[in-house]
């Protein structure tokens, strides 16, 4: 009796648990889950929140600096194929290095296996998505840009907040807040704004299975290539500084690169 029950139990368990696996093997995989891991470095040195707060990085201009806070937004991950429409994932992810959250992002939408001519995303929000009060979760993170003339009377959201301290030309420790937003010239008539989000191209890839992309940000690049950033002149109140925003956009072109890809 006992044995019979045990046998019955075991075999039921065995059958039901095996069921799905068998099916899985029979059905051919046609779509892949994608994952984007965001990692950060200062040239050859890895940067995590554990390396924050101490003045240890040297920028191209020769200023020593620390990082105390780093968060930035990415959006609209796009998969491009030959002869077919782009697959655009209308998503966003606030990468928060300070609190080590959202360092990894997996869009819900699965991507068909196949050859892609490019995988890309937007650093920041392009104008189409950069809409005042559109994202309560970002408001809750105090990520919004105030709707005032100085910032183009348009609201929207930050692209990046990079903050820390540096040693200035007078050899004193002082602070910087490298905040990147849609460039706005609130003093011009009419007020001008410019979409300074950046399309980051990770390049061509053949997706054969679930896939993980490492996206690297070299923070040093924000201060060089092609504009040699001098923190002594531009260290704070940069959101309303149209020229500074354009330079951020210029330097931002080479900040991201593709690291390892696993699938």
């Amino acid at each position: 009796m006992k044995r019979f029950f045990a046998l019955l139990l075991c075999s039921t368990l065995a059958f039901t648990s095996c069921g799905e696996d068998l099916d899985d093997n029979l059905v051919l995989k046609t779509e892949a889950e994608t994952t984007f891991n965001f990692t950060h470095n200062w040239d050859e040195t890895e940067v995590t929140s554990a390396s924050f707060d101490s003045i240890q990085y040297l920028n191209q201009n020769g200023d020593s600096l620390s990082i105390e806070k780093l968060r930035y937004l990415i959006s609209d991950i796009t998969f491009s194929r030959e002869g077919e429409e782009d697959i655009v994932l209308d998503i966003y992810n606030l990468v928060d290095v300070t609190n080590s959250t959202n360092l990894s992002f997996s869009p819900e939408t699965k991507i068909p296996l196949g050859q892609y001519t490019n995988v890309s995303f937007t650093y920041g929000f392009d104008d189409e998505d950069n809409i005042e009060n559109a994202y309560p979760d970002l408001n809750s993170e105090n990520w919004e840009v105030p709707n005032i003339q100085m910032f183009g009377n348009i609201g929207g959201y930050h692209y990046m907040q990079l903050e820390g301290r540096f040693i200035n030309n007078a050899d004193e420790e002082t602070t910087y807040a490298y905040h990147n937003i849609r460039a706005a010239d609130g003093m011009a008539t009419p007020i001008t704004t410019q979409d300074t989000s950046i399309q980051v191209n990770l390049g061509a890839i053949t997706i054969t299975n679930d896939i993980t992309f490492q996206v690297k940000m070299n923070i040093a690049e924000w201060f060089q290539n092609t504009y040699q950033w001098d923190l002594n002149t531009w260290n704070s109140s940069l959101m309303g500084n149209f020229d500074a925003q354009l330079r951020m956009n210029e330097n931002g072109q080479n900040v991201f690169s593709l690291g390892t890809v696993t699938q």
Binding site: N139, N142, E144, M150, G240
Partner: peptide, 18 residues
């Protein structure tokens, strides 16, 4: 309260969006 060249209070105390 919101202007960078005046109070610049919003980064810690928020904006009308929050």
């Amino acid at each position: 309260f919101l202007r960078e060249d005046k109070g610049d209070c919003f980064h810690c105390h928020g904006t009308p969006s929050n």
